[in-house]
Nucleic acid binder design. Structure first.
Length: 155
DNA sequence: GCCAACGTTGGC
DNA sequence: GCCAACGTTGGC
């Protein structure tokens, strides 16, 4: 039995929210155009869990949990000229961008706000509390993930 | 390879 | 609207 890893994945709720994911149940996490975030997705394993974080909204907060059900899927939006994520430099023979597929797991009855996270954790514990953090996908240490899940009232 | 200028994210 | 904290780009 192997341990799963935990991740935090940001999305602006205006663009895609936990409510959208609950309705669709699964989603491709496409449109990621940052190498570090892409590489984190590449290092995910099927069965890993991810915290769904609502960014650029009031209040920014963790709203639920997802499960990684697929990795290294070629991001179709890079080849779609109509997509805002279209990348003319990416070639069919050697796609630059890929993504994970996520499944809805749960929603927190009370979201954990960034304000709360800042009270409890330093930026070394949890990258998302770091001032000016722009990473949209980041790893979360297991102990902290378990803390957060406990705090969310899910378990 | 350096670095200035510019662009983006996202909290406040 | 401001700005911190990066990432990216392109000239040299």
């Amino acid at each position: 039995m192997t341990d799963i890893s935990y991740w935090l994945m940001k999305s602006e709720p205006d663009a895609y929210s936990i409510t959208d994911l609950r309705r669709e149940q699964t989603t491709l996490w496409d449109g990621i155009r940052n190498y570090q975030a892409r590489n984190f997705m590449r290092s995910m394993s099927i069965g890993d869990q991810a915290f769904f974080y609502h960014s650029n909204c009031k209040p920014p907060c963790i709203v639920g949990m997802m499960e990684v059900i697929n990795i290294s899927i070629i991001d179709p939006t890079q080849f779609d000229p109509k997509s805002k994520y279209y990348d003319p430099k990416s070639k069919q023979e050697s796609p630059k961008w890929d993504c994970s597929e996520l499944k809805y797991l749960s929603e927190f009855s009370s979201p954990i706000t960034l304000e709360e996270l800042k009270k409890t954790y330093t930026s070394e514990d949890l990258q998302v509390v770091r001032k000016g953090n722009r990473l949209s996908i980041m790893p979360i240490k297991k102990e902290i993930a378990e803390d957060l899940i406990r705090q969310s009232g899910l378990l």
